[in-house]
Write a protein that binds this DNA or RNA. Structure first.
Lengths: 152, 152
DNA sequence: GTATCTGCAAATGCTTTGCACACCC
DNA sequence: GGGTGTGCAAAGCATTTGCAGATAC
């Protein structure tokens, strides 16, 4: 996992601020979801997040989780990733920017940054007279461990 | 659009061979879908493909289209792309490999290849002791035309 | 008090599947 | 003739939405 570049408390502070800015009201769940994603450090599905919240509050509904994830993504507190066939997964945005290496066999997700690639992406966009807003790069691989397993 | 590296007839020849290899039977629709994608040269949704087929055969069902798209993708005659919120789009695989630049405003999709990026992707995988199977890179941008429009 | 938040259930949108008949070899 | 292909309708699955009660400010 890439380093987290901000403490949880600082993120929650920004979240509260963003909620006020949007004329919304505070809610336990929004902070809870941010905390869960921060603490897990990995990429969780809406379902997994819901299950996690339910360990503390049995009545948590997955629709609220979806609503909150939508808000948090819009406000850039979290980012979405589509690792394969099954639906989206989310991770806390307060990490250094990175891309993903996904094992097609075991589903393991690793993170990486390659400065040269980042640079070239900007240059490619410029060549097309386009303004680069974001990018998504996923390398689909068979990881070292799975390669060994398959051989055996 | 990147250059097509094979004629339609040659692709259909390979398709017929692949069908025999798989112990399947010939069908008009499989060839039709390959032709439609080849001739369009762009990225079509299952819905658009169905609509196109229906101009010649009104009874074409979208479920058959999905079934065939699944087969054609498995056999690498076509490749899938997820350009944004809405579902998959498919393009003929008989083009040079390329990645995509997608305009977030108008949805326009351009294709490009950057050799340096391709190379670094392989190196990154190696650094993780992983075997690179495929990759997906999408640059989300505001294209030149849309930038102008927004200013006006 | 009023607007937002939540859980629930129903709806949605894309995709897949079961089935009966049509078609290919 | 037996297996594969197709259209149709129904089912699946992830996600979204409408609504009524709960909660925050």
């Amino acid at each position: 996992m890439k380093n987290r570049v901000e403490t949880l408390e600082s993120i929650l502070e920004r979240l509260r601020h963003s909620i006020r800015q949007n004329g919304l009201k505070n809610s336990k769940q929004r902070e809870e979801i941010v905390s869960v994603l921060y603490k897990s450090g990995t990429h969780l599905s809406p379902e997994e997040i819901t299950t996690n919240l339910r360990t503390r509050d049995k009545s948590t509904s997955i629709s609220s989780v979806y609503r909150i994830l939508g808000f948090l993504e819009k406000e850039k507190f979290i980012t979405a990733l589509e690792p394969g066939k099954t639906g989206k997964r989310y991770e806390i945005a307060a990490k250094e920017h990175h891309d993903h290496i996904i094992c097609l066999n075991c589903g393991d997700i690793q993170e990486f940054v390659d400065d040269e690639i980042e640079l070239r992406q900007i240059q490619v966009s410029k060549a097309y007279k386009a303004k680069l807003i974001s990018h998504d790069m996923r390398l689909f691989v068979i990881c070292g461990r799975c390669q060994k397993q398959i051989k055996e």
